[in-house]
Amino acid sequence: MKKTLIVVAHPNIENSVVNQRWINELKKYPDQFTVHELYKAYPDGRINIESEQRLVEQHESLVLQFPIYWFNCPPMLKQWLDEVFLYGWAYGSTGDKVKNKKMAVAVTAGIGLADYMTNGRYKFTLEEVLRPFEITIKYVGAEYIPHFAFYGAEHNPSKEVINENAEAYVKYLARLTCSEPATNN
């Protein structure tokens, strides 16, 4: 069975509505998804590099899940990328551990989709904001899958909208392994 590792980086997951809902939906499919919450795994900020590398190696594909945080990722995810994606492991002449893996980012944005338009409030699309992740993924030889997003998280979205989005997230992730998630009956 092909399995996807979801690396969740949310510094305040207890107060997150959308990221928590995504995690709960993913946990319905333990045979397909491993949910790995960085801030819970490393409350002291000291990442076990070898353990993280083994975890990545054990999975067919990888998703970085996080809230947009000052138009970037939360600090622990940046630290994780810096410390885990090392020369000789992730890239370089002998670094091939993520080569050809499918990789994606799944993000929650506090502001609405209209704000992430070239004519919107911030003048940049979410694709442009996430470009460093796309470049990083391609740099290590992985296959970049365009992002998945929830827009308007800070505008008190309805439970129905959040639930529909969580279900759509699982369907999106099924593309990474080219298999549909098992029904949860």
Rank of each mutant, 00 (worst) to 15 (best):
M1I: 05
K2S: 14
K2I: 05
K3P: 12
K3S: 08
I6C: 09
V7E: 00
V8G: 02
V8A: 03
V8Q: 02
P11D: 04
N12C: 10
I13V: 13
E14S: 06
E14V: 05
S16R: 06
S16H: 02
S16I: 02
V17D: 11
N19A: 04
Q20I: 05
R21W: 03
R21G: 01
W22E: 04
W22G: 08
I23K: 01
N24G: 09
N24T: 07
E25H: 00
E25P: 01
K27N: 13
Y29W: 15
D31G: 15
F33W: 03
F33V: 07
K40A: 10
Y42S: 07
D44Y: 09
R46S: 01
I47A: 02
N48M: 03
N48D: 15
S51H: 12
E52M: 11
E52C: 14
R54K: 15
L55H: 08
L55F: 11
V56Q: 07
E57N: 13
E57S: 15
H59S: 09
E60G: 08
L62Y: 02
L62Q: 00
V63N: 03
V63A: 03
V63Y: 02
Q65H: 05
F66W: 04
F66Y: 13
P67C: 14
P67E: 06
W70G: 07
F71M: 14
N72H: 15
P74G: 09
M76W: 05
L77N: 01
L77Q: 07
Q79R: 13
Q79I: 07
Q79N: 14
L81T: 01
D82V: 12
E83T: 15
L86M: 08
G88H: 13
G88L: 11
W89A: 03
G92K: 09
S93Q: 11
S93N: 09
T94W: 10
T94R: 04
K101I: 06
M103R: 06
M103K: 04
V105G: 03
A106R: 09
A106E: 01
V107Y: 00
G110T: 02
I111S: 09
I111Q: 02
I111F: 09
G112M: 08
A114S: 14
A114L: 11
A114G: 00
M117H: 14
T118K: 12
N119A: 02
T125E: 09
L126E: 00
E127V: 09
E128V: 07
E128L: 00
V129W: 00
R131H: 14
R131C: 11
P132F: 07
T136C: 10
T136H: 12
I137T: 10
G141T: 07
A142F: 12
A142I: 09
E143A: 12
I145S: 10
P146D: 10
H147A: 05
F148H: 02
F150W: 00
G152T: 05
A153G: 14
H155A: 00
H155E: 06
N156R: 08
P157A: 02
P157R: 01
E160S: 15
I162H: 05
N163A: 15
E164M: 14
N165W: 09
E167G: 10
E167W: 02
Y172Q: 06
Y172M: 12
Y172N: 12
T177N: 07
C178Y: 13
C178Q: 15
S179W: 01
S179E: 14
E180F: 15
P181D: 00
P181C: 07
T183V: 15
T183K: 13
N184V: 14
N184K: 10
